[in-house]
């Protein structure tokens, strides 16, 4: 049963990787990376049960947190255009460059 789950997770990782490579829009890629991180968490969790090492579950939890932070940072960059100044977005900066 664990082996089937592992193989299914690996196949899903491949699909997510294909979406990250091909994804035409930015949001496709962000969703693909988020999904890939989730699949890594699941892979580690299943491996923890498969090999009987329950301390790997802590690693899986940390991965979930890191994945969340990374996706929030990526989305913040896409919406704002930068990290340092929430008021000026990218379109205004581009207008300023042309002047």
């Amino acid at each position: 049963m664990f082996i089937t789950a592992l193989l299914a997770i690996l196949v899903t990782m491949g699909l997510a990787l294909a979406r990250a490579l091909a994804g035409p829009t930015t949001y496709d890629r962000i969703a693909a990376v988020n999904m890939f991180g989730t699949k890594t968490v699941l892979l580690i969790a299943v491996l923890a049960f498969f090999t009987g090492r329950s301390d790997l579950l802590d690693i899986a939890l940390v991965y979930a947190l890191i994945n969340f932070i990374g996706v929030v940072a990526a989305l913040k960059l896409v919406t704002q255009g930068n990290f340092h100044c929430p008021d000026c977005n990218e379109s205004e900066a581009r207008q300023g460059e042309s002047k």
């Binding site: 990787l17 990250a20 490579l21 994804g23 930015t26 890629r29 962000i30 693909a32 990376v33 890939f36 991180g37 890594t40 892979l43 580690i44 491996l47 090492r53 301390d55 790997l56 690693i59 991965y63 994945n67 990374g70 990526a74």
Partner: peptide, 23 residues
């Protein structure tokens, strides 16, 4: 897209480290 793929790359290597018993 390259930065996103960097994230995937490092998740993959972290998964490999877990498989090799180096949590």
């Amino acid at each position: 897209a390259i930065v996103m793929l960097f994230g995937i790359f490092s998740l993959l290597s972290a998964g490999l480290f877990v498989v090799m018993d180096a949590p």
